[in-house]
């Protein structure tokens, strides 16, 4: 095992981790703001991926990056107003079941519309090549993807920490009733956060699909690892999701070097240890353990 292979694996893990970060941030801010355990988050990824596929074939990849998250955001607003709002703050078990059911409906609708076959994005030629990074040939697209995710995460953080809406959101995470008493529009802010979190998943759905290819189950394949990420980081914590994502990505990439068969299970082992030792997660607060 050479130093080069560690650098290589580290880079792979970083990029995989960043993809998890972008999906998990949506999951965690939705939980923080709405107290909603969203098992339909993977479905948002899948809708983004398929919308992106159609748009990319017709108009090009750039438009897909806009259309994917936009459609997902609209779908999320509809879902929120039509069903989910009745389940805010309810037992997590009921929320898990409801959103799990919604995920099945989405997955099956995609299967009926697009078929069960695995589909692939074709990238523009200039993105398809490789770049020399740290003395290695590395796929150019993965580098751009990583940089893009860093930029998006920074934007989301600025939105939450620097805008008036962000203020309501942060206050809402702490105490919903207080925000309402003080005249903040918590419902509007909730819907907005839900749409934003969903749109992030939709955006990753478009952006990551050239690497992973897509089928109707893709969303579900990302769902559970994303929960692993937020649980390790701390459910509801923004920087927890960032830290959790990088940890999970690196853990599975470095495990591949030693024992490829264990790359998948290692993240569950990590989650189990965190849950048993520090259930609030690495950066989470301790108040939310009880359901």
């Amino acid at each position: 095992m050479t130093a080069a292979s560690f650098v290589q694996a580290g880079l792979n893990g970083l990029i995989l981790g960043l993809i998890y970060v972008a999906i998990a941030i949506g999951l965690t801010i939705i939980f923080g703001m709405l107290r909603l355990v969203n098992f339909a988050h993977g479905a948002f990824y899948a809708i983004g991926a398929y919308v992106g596929l159609v748009v990319a074939q017709q108009y090009g990849f750039g438009y897909a990056l806009l259309a994917g998250p936009l459609v997902v955001a609209l779908f999320a607003v509809f879902l929120d107003r039509a069903v989910l709002r009745f389940f805010y703050g309810k037992e997590p078990t009921a929320q898990i079941l409801l959103t799990f059911g919604i995920a099945i409906i989405v997955e099956e609708t995609l299967r009926l519309r697009f078929g069960g076959t695995t589909q692939q994005y074709s990238l523009p030629q200039w993105l398809n090549g490789s770049l020399a990074v740290a003395g290695l040939q590395y796929p150019a697209y993965r580098i751009f993807l990583a940089l893009g995710i860093v930029a998006v995460v920074a934007l989301v953080w600025l939105f939450i920490s620097r805008t008036n809406y962000g203020l309501i959101v942060r206050a809402g995470v702490r105490d919903r009733t207080m925000v309402q008493l003080l005249g903040g529009n918590i419902h509007q802010a909730s819907t907005l956060i839900f749409a934003l979190g969903a749109a992030l998943a939709g955006l990753v759905g478009v952006a990551a699909s050239p690497i992973y290819s897509i089928d109707p189950q893709t969303g579900f394949n990302f769902l559970i690892p994303s929960f692993v990420v937020v649980v390790i980081g701390g459910l509801g914590s923004f920087w927890g999701a960032v830290a959790g994502g990088i940890i999970v990505g690196e853990l599975s990439a470095l495990t591949t070097l030693i024992y490829p068969g264990a790359a998948e299970v290692i993240i569950y082992v990590a989650m189990a240890i965190v849950l048993l030792v520090r259930p609030q997660g690495l950066l989470g607060e301790s108040e939310i353990i009880r359901g």
Binding site: V37, T93, V228, V231, M271, L276, P279, I289
Partner: peptide
């Protein structure tokens, strides 16, 4: 409890699968 319980059962089931 709740989501933590559900995810921990997932984690152990994945280990058994592995």
């Amino acid at each position: 409890y709740g989501i933590y319980f559900a995810l921990l059962t997932v984690a152990f089931a994945q280990m058994v699968y592995f």
